[in-house]
Nucleic acid binder design. Structure first.
Length: 146
DNA sequence: GCCAACGTTGGC
DNA sequence: GCCAACGTTGGC
């Protein structure tokens, strides 16, 4: 799961413990969240920053439920087309597990593209998804770099 | 349904 | 700041 550290970083998650993952407004990313289950592992990725990459590990702490910010007119995530009867956007709660011993920069992850496989979404050309799946094998390979 | 215009993401 | 890639919007 990607986050801009200026907005919400792994340190912020460590401080608050658990955070509702508000603001995802992309259907594909939403659909991936819908498939999440309590206890699923999360790689916490810092995007749009000096050194983009994986910085920590978190855990899915709730089943998916409607993102409350879609109903809040004052929120930048407000969606006028969403209703309580027919919500459009869902989220899960994300719970801090740990920071990595060292960050894994995207530049370094690229060096392991072959091992991670073609279907590794983060390295796909043009991939902009803020929520994407990682297989068990990819998870292991990434964390072995730590 | 097509597609141009526009907005956003995010690496560099 | 630049720009490629992609998603969304809205006119037709």
């Amino acid at each position: 799961m990607k986050s801009e550290p200026g907005d919400f970083s792994i340190d912020d998650l460590q401080r608050v413990g658990t955070e509702p993952w508000t603001g995802v407004r992309n259907y594909q990313a939403r659909n991936f969240m819908r498939q999440m289950q309590v206890g699923d592992g999360v790689l916490f990725y810092h995007s749009n920053c000096e050194v983009p990459g994986v910085y920590g590990i978190a855990e899915v702490a709730s089943t998916p439920y409607p993102d409350p910010t879609q109903f809040q007119k004052t929120s930048k995530y407000y969606d006028p087309k969403a209703t309580h009867e027919q919500p459009r956007w869902e989220l899960v709660d994300v719970q801090f597990s740990r920071k990595l011993r060292r960050p894994l920069p995207l530049s370094e992850i690229r060096g392991h593209a072959d091992a991670l496989g073609e279907e590794f979404e983060l390295l796909r050309k043009g991939s902009r998804l803020s929520v994407m799946p990682v297989t068990g094998a990819q998870w292991k390979r990434l964390l072995s770099l730590e």
